[in-house]
Design a protein around this nucleic acid. Structure first.
Lengths: 204, 204
DNA sequence: CGCGTCGTTGGACAGATGTCAAGAATTTCT
DNA sequence: AGAAATTCTTGACATCTGTCCAACGACGCG
């Protein structure tokens, strides 16, 4: 925060650009090694720059990681939304839901692994708590959107709260991720099926 | 493992006793700080002994933590099993299920927080993977036992696999834990209700 | 051209961390 | 009691960590 304050020289903020660039590299390293094993020097090594630069763009490690978490969210919601835009019948919607979640899992399993790591860290490190909670809420909303859309198409009503729905989908997703990373070939199919069968359970 | 090999002088193995004692102290520290912030010296400080002793009883940090994880499991399954022994009607069973999970959450939230931390770590650190997977399986079996008991009492059959059932209960539990640690007063009640309503959804 | 700001480097610092070994203290055995 | 085996402490080591800083090059502006 010291010298990383007001900075608006060029119309396109070059300072913010570099911050993003560094944070993206940091995210790659974090996804590889996990929070506990990632140091600032290791992050810098996956970069064209030296380790000192990180403190020019970020006040300290916490600010860097926090920025990374926010950046992860941007990439995350962008990937999700618009996934299952057009699904006429409820069955199509249920299938699209499972397909969408399986696709995003298969697409970037290491990033999702990092997400669960950071969410665990946020239970210990207060500094991450707010940002993690914000991401969690947006994910919950996404799931709730699917559930209500399914209820609409089946002319029923949800029989659970949005946080319950999110908890169950998240449970399925998390377990599928762990089995997928463990090399299980059926993990993705199980996730697809699990989602397809879960939706009808949540309405009546 | 160097000098921590065959050791059976006294009938009651004093060596194993100390290992357990140290591991229990380590578990307390881990539950407080989380894996990423816990060092061997910090563990020793929560102990009547000095830091060097840890390497007399454990070859290295990984062996200590692995031993802790195994020890956690012992305490864990012991706490769970026999919780909902007698429940005549299915409704009673569903209530006892929610009550049991809520009770264990309220009883040792920090330990459960540690469990989710270590499970995340196991996705990065291969050394923990096997032990974590073993605990996961025993938890899955516990949940499956409840589901099948509920199906029996309602003269129905489960409509999901045991891993699906575990994933959903675990999702509910994990979210309840996070909200409980965040100070939410309704987290426990939501967990109770969530479990009670989940069971009927998993059979037909 | 000279000058000042910005971006970047590389090294240095203090402190923490895992590991180890030498020896003191304690227990056990005879 | 004395010897032997054990349990435990202490201090040291090399390495890694976050953080800071002095200096250097590049670039734009007067």
């Amino acid at each position: 925060m010291t010298r990383a304050a007001a900075r608006r020289r060029t119309p396109v903020d070059k300072f913010e650009d570099r911050r993003r660039e560094l944070a993206d590299a940091a995210l790659l390293t974090l996804a590889d090694l996990g929070y506990a094993r990632t140091s600032l020097r290791t992050i810098a090594e996956n970069t064209a720059f030296s380790h000192g630069l990180l403190h020019y763009y970020f006040a300290d490690k916490v600010e860097l990681i926090t920025y990374c978490v926010r950046r992860y969210k941007a990439a995350c919601v962008q990937r999700y939304e618009g996934a299952m835009a057009d699904a006429a019948t409820p069955e199509e919607l249920a299938i699209a839901c499972g397909e969408g979640l399986a696709a995003t899992l298969a697409d970037a399993p290491l990033m999702h692994r990092l997400w669960y790591d950071l969410r665990s860290q946020s239970m210990f490190e207060k500094a991450f708590r707010d940002d993690v909670a914000e991401i969690d809420e947006s994910l919950e909303q996404m799931i709730w959107g699917i559930v209500t859309a399914y209820a609409d198409r089946t002319k029923t009503d949800p029989t659970c709260t949005s946080s319950e729905a999110y908890a169950m989908f998240d449970g399925l997703f998390q377990q599928a991720l762990m089995r997928h990373l463990d090399g299980s070939a059926q993990a993705l199919d199980d996730l697809r099926r699990g989602c397809r069968e879960l939706l009808p359970r949540l309405v009546s």
